[in-house]
Design a protein around this nucleic acid. Sequence first.
DNA 1: ACAAAAGTGTTCGGCCTACACCCATGC
DNA 2: GCATGGGTGTAGGCCGAACACTTTTGT
Lengths: 229, 229
Amino acid sequence: MATPVAQLAVSTVIFSLRAGSTLWLPLVRRIREPFEGQWALPGGPLGANESLADSAARTLQQTTGLTPRYLEQLYAFGTVDRSPSQRVVSVVYWALVRPDEAEQATEGENVRWFSADELPELAFDHNTIVEYALWRLRNKMEYSRIAHAFLGERFTLAQLREVYEAVLRRPLDPANFRRQIEAGQSIVATDEYLAGGRHRPPRLYRTNESIDLAENGPLPEQGAPHALR
Amino acid sequence: MATPVAQLAVSTVIFSLRAGSTLWLPLVRRIREPFEGQWALPGGPLGANESLADSAARTLQQTTGLTPRYLEQLYAFGTVDRSPSQRVVSVVYWALVRPDEAEQATEGENVRWFSADELPELAFDHNTIVEYALWRLRNKMEYSRIAHAFLGERFTLAQLREVYEAVLRRPLDPANFRRQIEAGQSIVATDEYLAGGRHRPPRLYRTNESIDLAENGPLPEQGAPHALR
DNA sequence: ACAAAAGTGTTCGGCCTACACCCATGC
DNA sequence: GCATGGGTGTAGGCCGAACACTTTTGT
């Protein structure tokens, strides 16, 4: 077999919400050159018997202990000079995980969560990659239903709205938000209410499983929302 | 260096319009196993000193002799079994070329243009890839200005509308189309008119260079519209 | 004059926005 | 009862769809 011109790696930008209202993502500290000691996106070389999406889900599992609620391919980065030594082409995925799960995620000397808009200088072109992932997340939030992936089984409309507000960084009218979400059929009302609040108890909803979170076209089950089954 | 688990290749789905109203794309005949004799997307291994987008533009040039008016990364395909022998991960681009250029494109025993919705059975998963590229093209046509990439320097609104109608496969109201296009600022009226028609001569327009064809977010000039400069 | 495409005007309805208002609960 | 978020009603504006109508050319 011909010797290749570049190494192939898979990395993942993992988003979660902290305090219900700020975007956080986990980074790993590099333990060898290049960029030893600096923070980088979790990832690594593609395994022999795993697809690209499998690889992304695996490193996600290994670094955070979590299973993604949403996983989608972001982009393949392959400029010649993005790694100073051996050339690397990185296929990057982005993922959403639930905050309640992220709370108990493994964190240690070499894995730490950062606020998405207060990142240090990262290894390679990873700052650019995160910026692009953020752009995609915000874009996709406006025309699809991925917000649900940040939430648990049952949630109130206010919680869902807070997700939108946190990602889009602008306040939304609760009344209009309700109608828009109800018009799309992405959620289903349960007959339960959230007690214990200080005011009128809000109704609890669940996601409508019969409708896909995002329309990804004719891609055959690859990096699509269901990659996690 | 560690031996890699997969070969890295770059392929391109190249679209053009034939007779102003049908989508066509060039395929190349495979001259060795696997899939010897079958038609496949143009592409090949990544070169040592070229970026992914460069590679896509190069094979496009080599197989058709053309320069793309628009070039964008489509997706990275990497399931384990997509090639029967050695595993291959393909980073696929899609491109738009002008019909007048495509007319005089090289065509021969091993390069032929096909109607996009009457394709034969292609090598590997290339039928799926073309379907996905078509989906992206049609999607992007609705919310960006890429239609211009199918046209020459000067064009009439009717010609632009025919591009939309061909790709979206539905008729558009000429009156409303005019206003929508004019509202977006993607075109500029010239003071020339197209004479020689059978009726009232339509005004000629040109693309507004000061506005990008598509908003691709914070990607640093990579596979973006300007990759061709 | 007539046909047909180029181009303009007008109406309608849906959807988003803003905001007034009622409802139900904890304190 | 009162504060507060949950939830409903409603009026205005914008935009796209539909379509009538005027303009300008070739024949």
